[in-house]
Amino acid sequence: MAVLRKDPAYRLPGGCVGCYGFIAGRFDITCLFKKNLVRFSSKLIIQLTKLGRGAPVLLDVELKENTLLVRPSGELDLGVADYLRNTLEETLDRGQARNLVVNLAKVSFIDSSGLGVLLGRYKRLSKSGGKVFIVSPQPHVRKVLELSGIFRIMNECPSEKEALRKIG
C-alpha cells in the first residue's frame, strides 16, 4: 500500500502534472499520460522530474509484508533529498513497514545529503526495532557509504532476496 500526495511541483515526463491516487492491495490501473505509460499496482513506480530543484529521480517503492523496498535511481543529492525524505516518510506513515531495504544499484551518485535521508529513516525505524538494509551500491557510491561509517549501523546485502531472508 502506498500513497502519494498530488504535488504541482512534480511533473510527469512529457509535461503532464502528475495526479496520484490511493493504491491498495492488488488493484491495478494503467494510465497513459501522453506518450508515457505509467503502470500503478501494489508495486508503485513513480517517475518524477523535480522542476527547478535538481536532477530527475526515479523512485520505485514496494511493500512486501512489513518491509518497504525502495529502489531509487539517479543522483541522490541536496536537490532531491527533501523529495526523497518526504516520500519515504509519507509511505512509512501510511504503511505497516517496520523494515527498510534500499536498493542502490541504479544510484549513480550520492553525497552527505542523500546519506542523511537514509540515516534519518534508520533512526526512525530502529526506535521500533526495525532494520535497514543497503543493497548493491555501485563501487563509487559504496566508497562514500563506507567512508561515512553507515555500514556500522546498516547491513549491506548483495540482493533484495538476501535482505528479505535476513529480515525473516
Binding site: R85, D111, S112, S113, L115, G116, V117, L119, G120, V144, L147, S148
Partner: peptide, 13 residues
Amino acid sequence: AERLGLGFVFMKS
C-alpha cells in the same frame, strides 16, 4: 539533525 556533518570529511578524504 537531518545532516551527517560529513561534508568537510568527504572533502578532506
